[in-house]
C-alpha cells in the first residue's frame, strides 16, 4: 500500500497517527496505521494467543490426575478460560489482516513464538498451583499494563482477560496454600514447585530493559506502557509477601528489601537458560509443537467434513 502513496501524504498520515496515540486515542482496525505498528501488533498478539493455547498443554497434563472433584472442575474451567482467551486474541489479531490458519502455520513452523514458560514440564500437582499463582500472576502484571495499550481490540481483549486471570491466580495460590497446610510430603512438593517455577516466572517479563530488542517503537506507539524491569519488580514485590504468608521460601538468597527504592532487589537471572530455552532447547519445546500439530492434523478430516457439510447446505438452500 505505502509504495503507491506519495511520501508527503505518508508522512502526514504518520504524524497524525502519532499525534492520536500521544493523546491516548485508541487505534481501531479501520484506522490508518504504519506497517511497522501493524506488524508489531500481529507479532505480539499472535504470540499472546499462542501462549494461551500452548499453555493448555502443561496444565492439561494434570486434568486426569486432579486429586479432587473440585480441583478437577476448577482446573478444567481454568484451562477452558485460557482457550477462550486464545480465541479472543486470535480474533483481535485477525482485525489486523492475518488469518487464524496463517497464525497456526506460523506457530507450527516456529516463525511465531509463544511464552517460553510453557517449555517447562509440569511434574507434580504442585506445579499446577505454581503455574496459577506464579505464571498467571506474572501474566496479570503484564496484562493489566496492556489494558491501556493503544490498539483498541487488543486493549478490550485484555480487559476481559484480566478479570478471569485474577481468578486463576487465586486458584493457583489456593492450591499452594492448601498444600502448605497439609502433610510434610505436600509441603515438600509445594516448595519444590516453587523452586522450579520462580526463576522461569521472572524470565517471563523478558530481558532487562537495556537488552530488550523490540521496546523503543512499542513505547512510542504506546503498545507497551511499562518496561520489562518495572513489571518484573512489581511482580516480585507482590509475590514475596504472598509466599511468606503461606510459608514458602523464595529460592533466591540475594532477595532483599531495598529501603531506598521501596522494592525488592533480586539475584541475577540466568539469561543463558532463558536464551537456551527460547532457542528451542527447553525440555518441552518439541513436545508442545508436536502435540499441537498432532491434534491439528488428527482434526483435519473433521474440519473438512464441517466445511463440506456447510457447502452442501448452502447449495440446498439456494
Amino acid at each position: 500500500m505505502s509504495s503507491n502513496t506519495a511520501p508527503a501524504i505518508e508522512d502526514a498520515r504518520l504524524s497524525k497517527f502519532e499525534e492520536r496515540v500521544q493523546k491516548g486515542d485508541a487505534i481501531e482496525p479501520r484506522d490508518w496505521m504504519p506497517e511497522a505498528y501493524r506488524k508489531h501488533l500481529i507479532r505480539q498478539i499472535s504470540q499472546h494467543a499462542h501462549s494461551e493455547v500452548i499453555g493448555m498443554q502443561p496444565e492439561g497434563n494434570w486434568i486426569t490426575r486432579a486429586p479432587s472433584i473440585r480441583a478437577k472442575q476448577i482446573l478444567l474451567a481454568k484451562i477452558q478460560d485460557e482457550g477462550g482467551h486464545g480465541l479472543y486474541l486470535y480474533s483481535a489479531a485477525e482485525t489486523l489482516g492475518i488469518s487464524r490458519e496463517e497464525m497456526i502455520e506460523q506457530l507450527q513452523t516456529g516463525k511465531a513464538k509463544y511464552s517460553n514458560i510453557f517449555n517447562y514440564p509440569t511434574l507434580t500437582w504442585a506445579d499446577i498451583g505454581a503455574i496459577g499463582w506464579l505464571v498467571d500472576g506474572a501474566a496479570i502484571v503484564n496484562q493489566v499494563s496492556l489494558q491501556r495499550t493503544s490498539y483498541g481490540p487488543y486493549s478490550r481483549a485484555m480487559v476481559r482477560i484480566c478479570k478471569e486471570e485474577s481468578f486463576h491466580q487465586r486458584q493457583g495460590y489456593e492450591i499452594m496454600a492448601m498444600m502448605m497446610k497439609g502433610t510434610p510430603e505436600q509441603r515438600e512438593m509445594a516448595q519444590d514447585a516453587m523452586n522450579r517455577w520462580w526463576w522461569p516466572s521472572l524470565m517471563m517479563f523478558g530481558p532487562h530493559d537495556s537488552d530488550s530488542p523490540h521496546s523503543s517503537d512499542a513505547f512510542r506507539w504506546k503498545i507497551k506502557r511499562h518496561s520489562n524491569d518495572e513489571l518484573r519488580t512489581k511482580f516480585i514485590d507482590k509475590t514475596v509477601q504472598q509466599a511468606e504468608v503461606i510459608g514458602l521460601t523464595i529460592p533466591d538468597p540475594e532477595l532483599k528489601w531495598n529501603e531506598a527504592t521501596g522494592h525488592y532487589d533480586h539475584g541475577e537471572i540466568n539469561w543463558d537458560e532463558f536464551y537456551r530455552v527460547i532457542q528451542g532447547n527447553g525440555q518441552c519445546n518439541k513436545q508442545r509443537i508436536a502435540h499441537h500439530k498432532k491434534a491439528h492434523n488428527d482434526g483435519a478430516w473433521v474440519r473438512a467434513a464441517a466445511e463440506a457439510y456447510k457447502v452442501k447446505q448452502a447449495v440446498k438452500n439456494n
Partner: peptide, 22 residues
C-alpha cells in the same frame, strides 16, 4: 471428555467438549 482438552479438532470444539465435561 476432559481427555480431549488440547486435543480437539479446532479450538472452539476443544472448548465445547470441555464445557460438556464441566
Amino acid at each position: 471428555l476432559s481427555e480431549w482438552c488440547s486435543n480437539g479438532p479446532f479450538l472452539e470444539e476443544d472448548l465445547a467438549l470441555t464445557n460438556i465435561a464441566l
